[in-house]
Amino acid sequence: MPTCPRWTVRRLVGHLGRVQSWVRSALADPSGTGVERGRPPEDWETLLAWFDEQCTEMTAAMADPDAPAWLPFDRYPKVAASWARRQAHEAAIHRLDAEHALAAEPSMVYDAELASDGVDELINWMVPSRADWSKSTASGTIALYATDTQRAWRVELTRGAPPRVEPTEGTGDLTITGTADALYRRVWSRPSNATVTGDTGLLEPIASP
Rank of each mutant, 00 (worst) to 15 (best):
M1Y: 12
P2A: 12
T3L: 02
C4Y: 01
V9K: 07
V9S: 12
G14E: 10
H15S: 06
L16E: 00
R18L: 12
Q20L: 08
Q20V: 00
R24H: 10
A28H: 14
A28L: 10
S31M: 03
G32P: 02
V35Y: 07
R37Y: 02
P40T: 04
D43S: 08
T46R: 14
L48V: 13
W50R: 02
W50L: 04
W50T: 02
F51T: 03
E53V: 12
Q54A: 06
C55T: 14
T56R: 15
E57M: 12
E57V: 14
A67H: 13
A67G: 05
A67D: 00
A69R: 05
A69G: 06
A69F: 08
W70K: 03
L71N: 10
R75S: 12
P77G: 07
P77N: 07
P77T: 06
A80L: 07
A80N: 00
A81N: 09
S82N: 00
A88S: 13
I93K: 09
H94E: 01
H94M: 05
R95T: 13
L96C: 15
D97T: 13
D97E: 09
A98L: 10
H100S: 12
A101W: 06
D111L: 07
A112Y: 05
A115W: 09
A115G: 09
S116M: 06
D117R: 13
V119F: 05
V119E: 02
L122Y: 03
L122D: 03
I123K: 11
W125A: 08
W125Y: 02
M126D: 00
P128S: 01
R130H: 13
R130K: 13
A131F: 14
D132T: 08
D132E: 11
W133R: 10
W133A: 12
W133E: 11
S134A: 15
K135N: 11
K135F: 01
T137K: 15
A138L: 11
A138F: 03
G140M: 06
T141W: 01
T141Q: 09
I142M: 06
A146I: 07
T149K: 11
T149G: 11
W153H: 08
W153R: 08
L157Q: 04
A161G: 08
P163R: 07
R164K: 14
V165Y: 01
T168F: 04
T168I: 12
T171H: 14
L174W: 05
T175W: 03
T175E: 05
I176N: 05
I176Y: 03
T177W: 05
G178A: 10
G178Y: 04
G178T: 06
G178E: 09
T179Q: 03
T179P: 07
Y184E: 00
R186E: 06
W188A: 02
W188S: 09
S189F: 12
R190F: 03
P191G: 11
P191K: 15
N193M: 05
T195M: 05
V196H: 06
T197R: 14
D199F: 01
G201P: 01
L202E: 09
P205V: 00
P205S: 07
P209K: 02
